[in-house]
Design a protein around this nucleic acid. Sequence first.
DNA 1: CTGTTAGCGCTTTCAT
DNA 2: ATGAAAGCGCTAACAG
Lengths: 339, 339
Amino acid sequence: MSATIRDVARKAGVGLGTVSRVLNDSPLVSSATRQRVLNVIAELNYMPSHAARSLSLGKTLTVATIAPFFTRPSVVERLCGIEANLTGSGYHQIFFNVENVERRNECLRDVSRREYADGVLIISLTPHADEIAPILKSHMPVVLIDAEASGLTDVRVDNPYGGYLATQHLIDLGHQNIAYLSDPLQDPLYFDFTSSRDRYQGYCKALNDADIPIRPDNHVWGLHGRYEARCLARNLLSRYDRPTAIFAASDTQAMGVLEAARDLSVRVPDELSVIGFDDIDVAEYLGLTTIRQPLFESGARGVELLLEILGSEESYLPPKHEMLPIELVVRSTTAPCQE
Amino acid sequence: MSATIRDVARKAGVGLGTVSRVLNDSPLVSSATRQRVLNVIAELNYMPSHAARSLSLGKTLTVATIAPFFTRPSVVERLCGIEANLTGSGYHQIFFNVENVERRNECLRDVSRREYADGVLIISLTPHADEIAPILKSHMPVVLIDAEASGLTDVRVDNPYGGYLATQHLIDLGHQNIAYLSDPLQDPLYFDFTSSRDRYQGYCKALNDADIPIRPDNHVWGLHGRYEARCLARNLLSRYDRPTAIFAASDTQAMGVLEAARDLSVRVPDELSVIGFDDIDVAEYLGLTTIRQPLFESGARGVELLLEILGSEESYLPPKHEMLPIELVVRSTTAPCQE
DNA sequence: CTGTTAGCGCTTTCAT
DNA sequence: ATGAAAGCGCTAACAG
């Protein structure tokens, strides 16, 4: 096995408490001995045992991340932000890839169990009231990324405003018949993603502000995914009075819309304007107009907030709420209305 | 804190050695007491401490994954396969996202350090001879995914064959002037990804078999990425005798080629056939003809192989080599040569 | 400032 | 088949 703290102590001619103090940046050690110990540590290529530290501290020294659908481009970006800031922090990571509701419920129920982790990051999942209570009671540090729940720290974007921005852009281009394509706005049997709902608010507000009546049939929804969006959009575009513009709640869904337009030989942007949300990597490739949100950054910032809580002495810190900026990115799938 | 093994023992009226035996499926315990202990465990919602187990066992109980560029779609797929099979295995995970050569070298040098992990998965990175030696000596279980190194277990695909398949498809369509666009074939200062090189072999073989001379200027390379590929392809397509078909070493690069074609108003597939490699998610969306390799599966299978080694009593197991199947997926970016 | 010591929760001999 | 006890490497409280 590799060198232990005892080896270091012996070789440096000090007690092993001193070595521990050096490791933990305790001020209670003279700079002379500190230097000596540091030298030996380097010499022996010593590295503290995570397990022993963890056991002794009574902490797991690991951070859990719960996220739906790891492979979705937007989630990948966020996870990368997390990885970037967690690697080198001394914390281990465990991941829960949520792909169905049972697992969602299970994960959110077990969040507060100390056995897994000292802190947890939750992406895009909104804990219900009865799930929040145990979390709060347990004092388990939790940071929500792209979600919001009373009493919990979060980092997110202003989704209603994003919906407003997107819709306003289309209105500015002269569109009146504007559809919104999204996930189900609420589905207690499903995941209860909230961004679609929030963006819908902005969509409605923009229409209202412009005195454009809101047509219920101009809002269609289905499971998240390109394929599903394609079907939905195909219906929309087959309509007698089809919309001249579609606002998709995500770039992935916007891709489905573009596919549907292609299927039906509807020219984009001449006959149909399309705007997405997220600005994932391929959006630029597709020339997709979209609302950009800082995905990587959201993960990175989430970790920072969590480490802050973890590092704090206080048993209770008031929840923080951080709003990341979003912006309209105009590319080539939106154009003035031709009608 | 939560229940410990001691609580369970007390409540079940047994010694804590017995509980431990139950936990570890030791045969040295009567089914009566086993059942009793199991009941108490369920009742107390007991869960063994990872750290304590780890410390006592002298193992880290964690698996490390080293991979370049976590956000690349192909890597994401592989990582997901890993996550899927590692979650629930009892092992923790740590990730090393390699984004530059220094980090690559550092990671590959430290692979054999027991402090980090009991086993490691390496994606798409090929250890050099001087890096392999310490690994072998340390007996650290290592599984290579999408890479190969003498003495180490790996799971990969037949890249030369893939290159052959792709090129042969183009030849079958009547193309003669076929370019190959890839990463640098070898660059000791870079990452030494080998797939580009291997696929190039297949490319050459297919041309040879068809008695088509290999034109050195028909092979262009640059850093991996859509942008870079776009520039390279633009040069290629601006040539007086531009190729009628391009084989890109990855779908991402193929996307760059499609962009370049669009830039120069070269119609695909009428004037230019394009084939990629990987069959990442967007390939289908783009209608990109490509060589599909099982990415998710590669990660999943890699974990299985690693867990097999980890679970084995033997200190040495002969390395295994697994080849996953690949296949040509014909879509709409390839067509018969018009000339 | 520094050395010594008692656990952290578990596995694993060693007795019985 | 089972209980008792040692020890994994570290931190923190205590004594100097």
